[in-house]
Nucleic acid binder design. Structure first.
Lengths: 161, 161
DNA sequence: GTAAAACCTCAAGTAATATTGAGGTCAATG
DNA sequence: CATTGACCTCAATATTACTTGAGGTTTTAC
């Protein structure tokens, strides 16, 4: 591509800078592969319309959406969940700051949770694996009992050994 | 199975409780599938010897090893890395508390790092996505520039939009 | 001493998250 | 107006971390 695009300056004052984006442009600006964008679209995380020649065009929203996808992924949130969160954004109109804020609020909790978990784990790792207390019955890693340690995954029984 | 094993009480005092474990016992006590143990073994994370009948037998070490595998995985450390860490444990003898401590020390840093990243991300998420400043040039999420935000993954350009 | 439970191997399947490639079309540039 | 880069679809492949199944053997229990 390497489009000669200092046209930005050529846009009329008062006119919105609403140029639609090609898939290549989005890919470059978001630092993701074109194939990843196809993939996200196939999974319903982003959307596009087509030109008469069947090429994808994106509204500028997509840039923030993809940014959010990457941020969320880096926290370990799976795409399916990200998709759900993004689905709460308004359909017709461009999301406002408020919309984004609402979306991020849910993740804030999620992040807090994950940070708590990791912190706890770190302390336990330090306290238990490091000191060898795993062998004893009073090891907190062996006997979680405090937080939601039990749910779903089975406790982290660090053995009786 | 459901072995009638209150034999534990039958062990002679002064005698070490060093009974070798079958794959099923390990699976049950670690709360992992037998197939997972096979898998870990195939990947070199744990090891066993065989009976004359070709069945696996494990030393009690394996219980802690598997526990460590699970703990480490829950922090997002991939098996390949866990394997490397476990490989630092002594070959011949049963690992001591010191050995385990050394191993966990590396992960402690790893965890600290991850906690820092998540915390930073949380704050940025709050500060940037929530407030809508993403649109501006002074958005810290858009212009990382501070921490190791740039390395490897490409910056989290939260777009100019 | 036999039947059930546990074990064995090896191949294939699953799920998430993409990437790569083949074969063909569209569009910007000289 | 032809070339070339960007784009299209669809299928296959890759990685991580396992699970499932088929077909057969060993161990344990009665």
């Amino acid at each position: 591509m390497t489009k000669a695009k200092n046209d930005k300056a050529a846009i009329q004052p008062g006119q919105s800078i609403r140029r639609e984006l090609t898939v290549g442009e989005v890919a470059e600006r978001c630092d993701v592969a074109v194939s990843a964008l196809h993939f996200y679209e196939s999974k319903g995380l982003i959307s596009s319309w087509r030109t008469s020649g069947n090429q994808r065009r994106y509204s500028r929203d997509v840039l923030r959406r993809v940014a959010i996808i990457k941020v969320a992924q880096s926290t370990g949130i799976p795409l399916a969940e990200i998709r759900q969160a993004l689905a709460t954004l308004p359909n017709g109109r461009t999301p406002t700051a408020k919309d984004w804020a609402k979306l991020s609020a849910g993740w804030r909790e999620d992040l807090d949770q994950r940070i708590r978990q990791l912190t706890q784990l770190r302390d336990r790792l330090e306290g238990c694996i490091g000191c060898g207390c795993l062998s004893m019955d009073n090891c907190p890693l062996r006997n979680p009992g405090d937080q939601a340690a039990e749910q779903g995954r089975g406790a982290l029984y660090l053995s009786e050994d």
